[in-house]
Design a protein around this nucleic acid. Structure first.
Lengths: 221, 221
DNA sequence: TGATCACAAACTGTATACTGTTATTCTGCC
DNA sequence: GGCAGAATAACAGTATACAGTTTGTGATCA
């Protein structure tokens, strides 16, 4: 695991932290600060951060690296990409998933269902992550998988915001249950259709939350 | 133009050279060599090459950087991505293209048609590049455009090989003429359908050339 | 009090040097 | 001549140093 060079290790470290939402929009990542914290020189940190920036996980400014600020337009553009790619990927995954992968997804969805009662958003988030990563791992087309993962990373903040909403929570879990069912039956067509609906619902949730946020801002004025 | 830092300039320089096919599969790019050639230190060259590698333009080895070696499987996977994304992009472009862009595409296709007689593969290549870049520039969805550009760069070698084939040459030009016609009429549905056919034809050309190469290899033994 | 300028601090970009690792060449042996 | 093994060269990775640039900050003056 740690049998790699500093740059790769730091890169992976920060990538997972970004994916888990541990880096806030206000955080400024500066190579020299991180370097002294980790007890290494600037260079490996700098290279790791620059790679994360070139992959869209971060945004390089004149004063350190920050999370990229997504415009409404960009977010809507990502939803188009999701509609085009993810149904096909899910259909492939339904055909190719292994029994072991199905078991993992079963577990994850069971966890997600329980969070409807308990309200444990953190567990819901982790379970969703596992479910998604597992079915994506079952996609035999590696380039398709990589492309999806690449842009998914960039809308992480939107996903986190959506998951905190009770109504969206229910919609997402319902989608996961249906998808799991399709994967279990190796129903490629069903999985593709359901994932398309899933993306459309996510888009609706995003737009609804956005309207709500704008309304509350208007009310404050 | 040159009002940037060394890293960015070197990065752009090598990216265009790779896109134009000026870097061969045998070339080994080593930062120290390039650095002394350009009269700068290793670091900006190293960072430029590593960014190109992280974007898939190059492959980092234990001994310098080389063009990535695409497996047959990877190439087929890219064709799936093209089928999923490019028809939608072309449909959007047909709706959004400007008159100026149409004029540029008109010019490019006229050039491409002439190369059918003259056999000027280099001009054909440049004209195709202009045609593709122009209609992609007309795609209003920036994220979709970026995603397409990203993987297109990686199958550059396949495109170059295909263009050298007479039969593929004719098929490609026919496709460009039809697409131009759709763009001129702002026929989104037609452009999407025609681009899907275009990708399928490209896939067939690739497979045909691959079989031919394998046959000639067998005959040599 | 507010604007302007200068200065300091904080970062980025680049250079240079050193270290460890891996391919390549050389050497002797069979 | 062919094959181990050692020596060597070539290269990646990291550290340190410094220069250039941008941003914040405080002093000075109207």
């Amino acid at each position: 695991m740690t049998r790699q060079n500093h740059r790769t290790r730091i890169y992976q470290n920060f990538r997972t932290r970004i994916q888990r939402g541990e880096i806030g929009p206000e955080d400024r990542l500066v190579d020299t600060v991180i370097a002294t914290e980790l007890g290494v020189s600037r260079m490996p940190v700098r290279e790791a951060l620059m790679q994360l920036a070139s992959e869209g996980y971060l945004e390089g400014t004149t004063r350190g690296f920050t999370l990229p600020s997504l415009s409404h337009t960009q977010i809507m553009e990502y939803f188009v990409l999701r509609r085009l790619l993810e149904p096909h990927a899910a259909a492939l995954a339904a055909q190719s998933r292994s029994e072991a992968q199905l078991a993992v997804m079963n577990e994850a969805v069971a966890d997600a269902v329980r969070t409807l009662e308990s309200g444990d958003i953190n567990l819901f988030y982790r379970a969703s992550e596992i479910f998604r990563n597992t079915w994506l791992a079952a996609v035999p087309n590696g380039e398709l998988r990589q492309t999806i993962l690449r842009y998914l990373a960039q809308v992480q903040s939107v996903r986190l915001a959506t998951m905190n909403d009770r109504q969206a929570h229910q919609i997402i879990v319902a989608g996961q249950q249906d998808l799991l069912d399709c994967f279990a039956r190796r129903d490629a067509v069903g999985a593709g259709d359901r994932l398309l609906r899933f993306v459309l619902e996510a888009e609706q949730s995003y737009l609804r939350l956005r309207r709500a946020r704008e309304d509350s801002q208007d009310a404050a004025r």
